[in-house]
Simulated assay, not measured.
Amino acid sequence: MARAGLDTHTLVLAAAELADEYGVEEVTLAALAAKLGVRSPSLYNHINGLAGLRTLMAVYGLEQLYEVMSAAMEGVSGEVAVHAMSQAYIEFTRQHPGLYQTTLKAPEQGDTALEAAGGKILSLILQVLSGFGLDEEGRLHAVRGLRSILHGFSTLEHQGGFAMPLDLNVTLTRLINTYIAGIGCMGSDAASLK
Rank of each mutant, 00 (worst) to 15 (best):
G138K: 05
V128S: 10
Y60H: 15
L150H: 08
T103L: 03
M1E: 12
A71N: 10
A113V: 00
L168H: 10
V12I: 15
C185G: 10
A15Y: 08
L156K: 11
L13E: 14
T10K: 14
H141D: 14
R3G: 01
V27M: 08
A15H: 09
I121S: 07
F132V: 06
L140I: 13
L175I: 07
T178R: 09
Q127H: 14
A14E: 08
S70F: 07
G78F: 08
T93A: 14
L122S: 12
P41I: 11
E91Y: 04
A2T: 15
E137T: 14
A2S: 15
G37K: 03
S86I: 08
G160R: 04
S130A: 15
G5L: 09
A16T: 06
L122K: 13
F92E: 03
H96F: 07
I125N: 01
L29Q: 13
T173G: 02
L50V: 09
S42N: 12
L168A: 04
E136N: 07
Q109N: 03
F153W: 09
E108V: 05
G133A: 02
V68D: 01
V27G: 07
L6E: 12
L134W: 07
L36G: 12
F162L: 14
L43A: 07
G5W: 11
V24Y: 04
G49C: 07
L172H: 05
R174D: 03
L193C: 03
G23L: 10
E74A: 13
E115M: 14
I125S: 05
I121A: 01
M186F: 15
L134D: 03
L126G: 15
G119H: 05
L134E: 05
D111S: 10
